[in-house]
Amino acid sequence: ALRETGVIEKLLTSYGFIQCSERQARLFFHCSQYNGNLQDLKVGDDVEFEVSSDRRTGKPIAVKLVKIK
């Protein structure tokens, strides 16, 4: 799958939103999709991810998040 990059724009307890670098979009992500310690993730962090689609709504979502050092 194609990896994309973006910036954490909003972060809540169990989910957040990424502002994409490659496209004009804000993508939802669930915190279970982040492969690191959530305490280390904060607004403004650069992340890399794959784009999938929500099974219920069909909308694009970010999965398999990795923080870019």
Rank of each mutant, 00 (worst) to 15 (best):
A1D: 14
A1T: 14
A1E: 12
L2M: 15
L2F: 06
L2V: 04
R3C: 03
R3F: 02
R3Q: 02
E4R: 15
E4T: 13
E4K: 09
E4Q: 10
T5W: 02
T5C: 08
T5G: 04
T5M: 04
T5V: 05
G6C: 01
G6I: 00
V7P: 00
V7M: 04
V7F: 11
E9K: 10
E9I: 12
E9N: 15
E9A: 10
K10N: 06
L11M: 14
L11N: 03
L11W: 05
L11R: 07
L12V: 10
L12N: 15
L12T: 05
L12D: 08
T13V: 03
T13N: 11
T13I: 11
T13L: 06
T13Q: 02
T13H: 06
T13P: 14
S14F: 04
S14Q: 07
S14G: 07
S14V: 03
S14P: 06
S14T: 03
Y15T: 09
Y15K: 05
Y15V: 09
G16T: 01
G16A: 03
G16H: 00
I18E: 01
I18H: 01
Q19V: 10
Q19M: 07
Q19K: 01
Q19G: 09
C20H: 14
S21H: 03
S21I: 07
E22W: 04
E22C: 08
R23M: 08
R23T: 06
R23P: 10
Q24T: 11
Q24C: 11
Q24N: 14
Q24H: 04
A25K: 15
A25P: 11
A25T: 12
A25G: 05
A25C: 10
R26K: 15
R26M: 15
R26T: 11
L27G: 01
L27F: 08
L27K: 01
L27P: 02
L27H: 02
F28Q: 07
F28V: 08
H30T: 12
H30R: 08
C31R: 13
C31M: 14
C31F: 07
S32P: 06
S32G: 14
S32I: 06
Q33M: 13
Q33D: 02
Q33T: 10
Q33P: 06
Y34V: 13
Y34S: 09
Y34N: 09
Y34W: 12
Y34H: 09
G36A: 12
G36F: 06
G36T: 06
G36C: 03
N37R: 14
N37H: 15
N37W: 07
L38C: 15
Q39P: 13
Q39K: 06
Q39S: 12
Q39E: 15
D40R: 05
D40Y: 06
L41N: 00
K42M: 12
K42R: 12
V43W: 02
V43D: 06
V43T: 15
V43M: 05
V43H: 02
G44S: 03
G44W: 04
G44K: 05
G44L: 04
G44Y: 02
G44E: 07
D45G: 03
D45I: 04
D45M: 08
D45S: 13
D46Q: 13
D46R: 11
D46A: 12
D46Y: 09
V47G: 00
V47A: 01
E48T: 08
E48A: 13
E48M: 04
F49P: 00
F49D: 00
F49C: 01
E50N: 12
V51I: 11
V51N: 04
V51R: 09
V51D: 01
S52M: 13
S52H: 14
S53W: 11
S53H: 07
D54V: 05
D54F: 07
D54T: 10
D54W: 05
D54P: 05
R55Y: 05
R55K: 09
R55S: 10
R56I: 13
R56W: 02
R56V: 09
R56K: 11
T57Q: 08
T57I: 03
T57E: 11
G58C: 03
G58V: 08
K59M: 07
K59L: 06
K59D: 08
K59Y: 04
P60W: 11
I61K: 13
I61L: 15
I61G: 07
V63N: 13
V63G: 04
V63W: 05
V63M: 10
K64R: 10
K64S: 15
K64Q: 15
L65A: 12
V66N: 02
V66A: 10
V66Y: 14
V66M: 12
V66W: 10
V66H: 06
K67E: 04
K67V: 09
K67Q: 11
K67R: 14
I68H: 06
I68V: 12
K69E: 12
K69R: 05
K69N: 14
K69I: 05
K69H: 03
